[in-house]
Nucleic acid binder design. Structure first.
Length: 865
RNA sequence: GCCCCUGUGGCGGAACUGGUAGACGCGGCAGACUCAAAAUCUGUUGUUCGCAAGGACGUGCUGGUUCGAUUCCGGCCAGGGGCACCA
């Protein structure tokens, strides 16, 4: 006697999940297969910073990745799906300071905690390739890379401005500057010029830009952001001279407007400005004032345009007239040449400045009907008042004027980029030491291969101010590798973005014991990353650096690949409601409840709680939920289903406890279905029996046909990354099966086939319950080792379709017909419907539209209004 | 300011190349089971008029193209994101 489906006990997710997680680990179920001849597929989620606990955002990111990995395995790919830790960085040092932990201990302790959390979610990782960027072996190899870059001219030193804490005597990261003050000392932060290490990412500006067009698997949005960031502009540099043998080189992307130039402007940081400041009190004041103001970048952006006349004049190279030279705060030194010629009539900034200082405006571009009275005029037009350019279009004029200036030997076609070289020096302990020596005799000397690796000392004191490596009593003192004189080590460490710029290449290493972390052969074997998944917040920096690194490593001979990520998917953030007290203090969601009036109140005190908007989950706003708690209460499968259901994965995900509970219910509903079918004799064995479709009842036949459609829909949806639809389709199919439970007894074979394919489809999303059911129903191997279900095309064709009948575009009824039925017969049937006939009778029939299998539309005139 | 994206029930969201708007889920309502509740199963749920049959309205607003528009085109509004004096 089989049980009623409602009497089946709830699914014991806790023991099943533990069982399968142990099984997978013990059997190395997801170790990378590097031997088969199947096509390869490399799935990678952006690796994690070991901050202490996994948060829901990670869960969503890794669930999406895991579904891909499992799906691709089922579709016959050999999949590389590795996991690791982005483990260097500032928080470890903060923890060292606050909690008296060594950064290393803190980091590895966090990794252990987070690893156990990740394991409890059942992701199909190859743990044999796991590493942390703070592992000695990893950062030691990174030093080799640094030296290779050095050798290839991709590394250099230059002075650069940093946030300097004058009390702690150290450099601060931007995040450590709070309201213009150092976070620890509270001292007002200064801008200081310090010698720093740079990587020449600008060497690759053009390639980074042009290759973007070929990245078809990247979101357009990310590509646009990178394009803007690289910021290429093509134009012409022009030398202006005067009789005093002085000269200024300006850059313009619109050299065709040169006849409208009425003054020159240079940056307060320009050499000429600095020179003039030496002898002119007024200019000195202006330049100094500017420097003060420039400390806060945001302030600068909103600043009023200010300038000062230098008294110097330059000759206009084509007109011979004299142009005054101004120092102007809106001219940036670090773009172009730090100087411009100003054409107020056709440039907003120039216009604003000219108005303020009463400078002349000369119009040189005409709209269709003469000069526009609206100034500045920025639209396209035809050149005027411009000598040999008159009558030409802008593009043509540009070409001709540049040719002319080049011919006069005062102009040069040039391209400038917004992209700056990458400053990688960090004056702190918990990072990869830069393998360089400073010798009083030889200057800067890269360490020799034999002096590597430079390991971090473990006995460090964080109570001193400044970089602990710098204040370490012995660590930095060495002999110069060239002359043997007493020298010191570089005490800067590398930006952690360097660590994350090549980790995806390290994962390719098939022999984890190898010392050559960039095995050319293995990288050729696995790269590119076929599917990279992560947050859009890395759209620029990480993704640009990783692209640059890959190209630089290729130039240094380490790899052949030049673009690391074939397909990129950026998932949305997980958001949750926010609650606060009247005084603005944030509250945890569990601290509030809805009272009987529907308002929210603080449970402890009963005071009214303010409901804020949905915002990204963050500790500071206290709108976080703990994955551990959820897994304990609802299980990993329910959580995995929840984070991908309802919302498309690239959109922000609104957390809801009710939604999560619904997923828990669904898991149970599926479980009861499995057990019910089992009790009715549905099992693996029956799947091999021949299907006798003809003998099926209409409803079971329809279920089977509908299920073929579900398989197609689920397959397409996963391929297209519409995970929310995958869940919807699977739920739909479960619902349909529930409605036919009475039929199971007489149709065991077909239900065996259906349930087999259902488990296969659900397995990438909810692997634990699927393995458990798979085993109970007597299937061999693992559900995750089985092939993806196929569908029978024949059942996708329907024999009856419900055809909508419209009159003047309005639905008046539907008829059930064979989709292949002929036009006239369909019209006739349609007109048998009262609603249709009556509507048509309201006027005279003008036209009949018939789209086979889609729609019928009667168009009538004089329809009643 | 410039660039990009988004706008569909009470909510998250579906809708093939223009062809029955609202799949699936959440929430709500009702029924079954139960002494009762929970759980479960089933039904129902855009708004509105109507006892009903059946109508009217409805995809941010507004024009247009079309037999037919959530879908294509123009203008506007709102929200989100990126860049921000880049010559």
């Amino acid at each position: 006697m089989s049980p009623d489906i409602s009497e089946i006990a709830a699914y014991d997710f806790a023991s099943a999940e533990a069982k399968w997680q142990n099984f997978w680990l013990k059997n190395r179920s997801f170790s990378t297969d590097c031997t088969s001849s199947n096509p390869k597929y490399y799935v990678l989620e952006m690796f994690m910073y070991p901050s202490g606990k996994v948060h829901i955002g990670h869960v969503r990111n890794y669930t999406i990745g895991d579904i891909f990995a499992r799906f691709k395995r089922a579709r016959g790919f050999k999949v590389l799906h590795p996991v690791g830790w982005d483990a260097f960085g500032l928080p470890a040092e903060n923890a060292a300071l606050k909690q008296n932990y060594h950064p290393k201990d803190w980091t590895y302790k966090n990794i252990a905690v987070m690893k156990s959390q990740i394991l409890s979610l059942g992701f199909s990782y190859d743990w044999e390739r796991e590493f942390a960027t703070c592992d000695e072996k990893y950062y030691a190899f990174q030093q080799k890379i640094f030296l290779a870059f050095y050798k290839n001219g991709l590394v250099y030193r230059k002075k650069s401005e940093v946030n300097w804490d004058p009390v702690d005597n150290c450099v601060l990261a931007n995040e450590q500057v709070v309201d213009g003050r150092g976070w620890r000392s509270g001292a007002v932060v200064e801008k200081r010029s310090v010698e720093q290490w740079f990587l020449k990412i600008t060497d690759f500006a053009d390639e980074l830009l042009t290759e973007l067009d070929k990245l078809e698997g990247w979101p357009e949005k990310v590509k646009t952001m990178q394009r803007n960031w690289i910021g290429k502009s093509e134009g012409c540099s022009i030398v202006f001279k005067n009789s005093a043998e002085e000269s200024v080189t300006v850059f313009s992307t619109r050299p065709e407007t040169i006849f409208g130039a009425t003054f020159l402007a240079i940056s307060p940081d320009h050499e000429l400005a600095k020179k003039l400041a030496l002898n002119n009190e007024e200019i000195k004041l202006f330049v100094e004032e500017f420097r003060k103001g420039s400390v806060a970048r945001e302030f600068l952006d909103k600043q009023e345009k200010l300038g000062i006349d230098t008294g110097i004049v330059m000759d206009h190279p084509l007109l011979g007239k004299k142009l005054p030279v101004y120092i102007a705060n809106f001219v940036l030194m670090d773009y172009g040449t730090g100087a411009i010629f100003a054409t107020p009539a056709h440039d907003e900034r120039d216009y604003e400045f000219a108005m303020k200082y009463g400078l002349p405006v000369e119009r040189v571009i005409q709209a269709k009907h003469g000069f526009s009275s609206d100034l500045p005029f920025l639209d396209d037009g035809v050149l005027a008042n411009s000598d040999f350019l008159n009558g030409l279009g802008v593009i043509e004029a540009r070409k001709i004027v540049i040719d002319k200036l080049v011919q006069m030997k005062i102009g040069k076609r040039e391209t400038f980029f917004k992209l700056r070289d990458w400053g990688v020096s960090r004056q702190r302990y918990w990072g990869c030491p830069i393998p360089v020596a400073h010798c009083p005799e030889c200057g800067i000397v890269p360490l020799a291969e034999k002096d590597l690796p430079v390991l971090l000392p473990s006995d460090v004191d964080f109570s001193n101010s400044g970089n602990p490596l710098d204040s370490h009593p012995t660590w930095k003192h060495i002999k110069c590798p060239v002359c043997g004189a007493s020298a010191v080590r570089e005490t800067d460490t590398l930006d952690t973005f360097v660590d994350s710029s090549w980790y995806f290449l390290r994962f390719c290493l098939n022999n984890s014991n190898s010392d050559d972390l960039l095995s050319h052969e293995d990288i050729d074997y696995w790269m590119q990353v076929d599917q990279y998944i992560g947050g859009v917040e890395h759209a620029i920096l990480h993704l640009l650096y990783a692209r640059f690194f890959t190209k630089a490593l290729a130039d240094c001979g380490f790899v052949s690949v030049r673009e690391p990520f074939k397909n990129l998917f950026t998932q949305g953030m997980v958001c949750n409601a926010t609650y606060s007290r009247g005084n603005g203090e944030w509250l945890f969601p569990e601290e509030v409840r809805k009272n009987k009036d529907g308002d929210f109140e603080v449970i402890a005190t009963g005071e009214k709680a303010i409901v804020g908007r949905f915002e990204k989950m963050s500790k500071s706003k206290k709108n976080v939920v703990d994955p551990d708690v959820i897994i304990k209460k609802h299980g990993a499968d329910a959580l995995r289903i929840f984070v991908i259901s309802d919302t498309p994965p690239d959109k922000d995900f609104p957390w809801s406890d009710d939604g999560l509970e619904g997923c828990g219910r669904f898991v149970n509903r599926v479980w009861r279905l499995f057990l019910f079918l089992e009790s009715k004799g549905v099992c693996a064995k029956l799947c091999s029996e021949e299907l006798k479709v003809e003998s099926l009842s209409v409803s079971v036949m329809e279920l089977y046909a509908g299920f073929q459609r579900i398989i197609k829909n689920v397959t397409d949806a996963i391929e297209n990354r519409h995970m929310n639809k995958v869940v919807a389709y699977i739920r739909d199919s479960v619902n349909s099966i529930y409605l036919l439970l009475d039929e199971v007894e007489n149709n065991r074979t077909i239900f065996s086939v259906i349930i087999r394919d259902l488990i296969k489809m659900l397995a990438p999303i909810a692997p634990h319950i699927c393995e458990e059911a798979w085993e109970r129903l007597g299937f061999s191997k693992l559900a995750s080792e089985n092939s993806w279900p196929t569908y029978d095309e024949n059942y996708l064709k329907v024999s009856v379709v419900s055809l909508p009948i419209q009159v003047n575009g309005k639905l008046r009824g539907t008829i059930e017909i064979d989709p292949e039925e002929e036009e006239d017969a369909v019209f006739e049937k349609a007109l048998r419907l009262d609603g249709v006939r009556n509507a048509v009778a309201q006027g005279t029939l003008q036209k009949k539209i018939f789209i086979r299998g889609r729609i019928v539309n009667f168009v009538i005139a004089n329809a009643e209004k």
